[in-house]
Amino acid sequence: MNREILLSVRNLVKEFPIHGGLLGRKIGALQAVSDVSFDIYKGETLGLVGESGCGKSTLGRCILRLLDPTSGSVKFQGQELTTLGKTELRKLRRSMQIIFQDPFASLNPRMSVEEILGEPIDIHELAPSKEARKKRIFELMDLVGLRKESISRYPHEFSGGQRQRICIARALAVEPQFIVCDEPVSALDVSIQAQILNLLQDLQKELGLTYLFIAHDLKVVEHISTRVAVMYLGKVAEIASGEELYEKPMHPYTKALLSAIPIPDPTYKKDRILLKGDVPSPLNPPSGCYFHPRCPVVQGNCSKDIPQLVAVLGAVDHAVSCHYAKEGPH
């Protein structure tokens, strides 16, 4: 298969400084994303899963430069993003957009649908006339399944699912190629969640979009993604095609995560891998492999040597970061 790389991330690190003491000096750093590398191919959906605090949202924001990465490189269609100036960055934002988790907080309550969708069109000067602008707004509303009549309504008059549709329409207004979807369905009820997932899939097919889909719900991620990356404490633990990852997970964390998914079938009895304890604080990450204090198969050098993300022998598109990765049932 001939795949074109749309976005490539190399050794990305994002540190947040910790200030303290009487003078508020920098006394330490929290590494939210530590040394992450991966590629996103054109037209695919890369799913990014992990538990809260694993750095998945920070990673998404660093890619779009909504946060400035501490070090590393992000290339979009061969263009380095981390060194771009303000004006160039703004131009590039036409190609890259984001949809946030909370459709209640990410829409300005004082703006009508027309104003919300018109803003990106105005900023990027995409409509030559008033008529063209209005036509484009109707087009966008139609695309995401909003009724024409609601053009002058305000966000509070919509339900959560409809608000998320407005957010999607806003992201699409500038005809982007790449969209970061940061937990776009987590705040929605299951029946509405399914509507939005279908919409995202339809739009991808119709407009040839590429998604980075960030979520903590493994069922949702598997459903929508071509490939899936699992993050733990700022690092990628495992990355593989969706089916491969769910059928042959190699990393003990991935296995535990998969075994924890509640299956809506009461007749099914599973062998659940219960992890000990909580995710450690990224302020004070464990030595060696970050997962070793909770790992059910921890061995000798796990607490000393940091494992690297290496390709799995004999598998296509599968890389894992574990000294003792073994295929096995989860």
């Binding site: 399914a194 509507q195 069922k219 598997e222 769910y246 059928e247 299956i263 809506p264 079938d265 007749t267």
Partner: peptide, 25 residues
Amino acid sequence: SIPVLSHDPTGKKKKSRLEPIPGLV
């Protein structure tokens, strides 16, 4: 409305498309 895993342990078939409940409460 719930997505099914491709390697669903209960042997359910993966859906390429979800069947949501239309409309709102």
